[in-house]
Design a protein around this nucleic acid. Structure first.
Lengths: 151, 151
DNA sequence: TTTAGTGCAAAATGTTTGCACCTCT
DNA sequence: AGAGGTGCAAACATTTTGCACTAAA
């Protein structure tokens, strides 16, 4: 085998597996680059931007280009294995899809991103939507403020 | 006077007034273009994109350029008279600042945008943030789904 | 061997900016 | 007169795409 597997973990192996399954099902091909990108993506911190991800990937294979990373992330999202977020700073952030849904708190000073979940809010959202005759498919709920360190 | 005032309303006159006050206070100048842009902005439907706004403005003065519209909107936001929203479709939407805060419901099929407000959700947000030692400055809460017509 | 993927560079998109000229104050 | 504004086109930043070449299946 020629592909390196530096930094592989259970989590990344698992995501690579799932992604390969998706590719197979869709008649798409598994490639060295896709495996690498997905593995790096699975192991890095959440809410990573493409720029940062490319840097990490290039540490293991300098030949991988932006286009491939963009294309792979798009496929991951289509596969339901990742989700995109736009926090209004101009570029997209990606995170592996978590089992449990969560929303985000963003520190406007240091940029820290934390996660939160509140079941009551989720229920109220449903209620708001239903009472107006709409159907809820997804939502985005972001709280911007100052984290404990920056207050 | 040379500036046209087609379509002027109480609402638009009021916003123009406020904006002029802001400009004066900041040592900036009131201009024909700024008046026009603000007037059109105040009278059109909420959540307008720059593209659409430019079209409306050009109907009254074809010489006004994109740059001026962008610059004026930025000033309006700085003045606290308008706010920007990014709904993830790539371009910014603007709306005049309302007295009462509200959030948005977006139809994923026809693009309709409705507004909602739920005080209980607002309180729960505050609680989430406070319990983690954060301070809430602003938030974004968007519900994506299907409107009654598109279900 | 056929179909899809890759890397590059060019294009596209939404937004900002440099500059010569114009216009408020 | 002088500070600031405008319109244009060029610059930007992020993301997408066309194409010749390469690699899975």
């Amino acid at each position: 085998m020629t592909a390196q597997k530096t930094g592989s973990t259970d989590a990344s192996d698992h995501l690579v597996e799932e992604f390969r399954a998706f590719l197979g099902k869709e008649g798409l091909k598994a490639t060295r680059q896709r495996d690498l990108i997905v593995r790096v993506f699975a192991d890095c911190k959440d809410h990573i931007g493409v720029e940062d991800l490319v840097q990490l990937v290039k540490q293991q294979d300098a030949a991988v280009g932006y286009a491939t990373v963009y294309r792979t992330l798009k496929l991951l999202v289509q596969a339901g294995l990742a989700s995109v977020r736009h926090f209004g700073d101009g570029f997209a952030r990606f995170e592996p899809r978590h089992e449990e849904h969560h929303d985000h708190m963003i520190c406007e000073k240091c940029g820290t991103i934390a996660e939160f979940h509140n079941e009551k809010i989720e229920e109220l959202q449903e209620e708001v939507v239903r009472s107006r005759g709409w159907t809820l498919r997804r939502h985005r709920h972001e709280l911007y403020g100052l984290c404990p360190n920056c207050r």
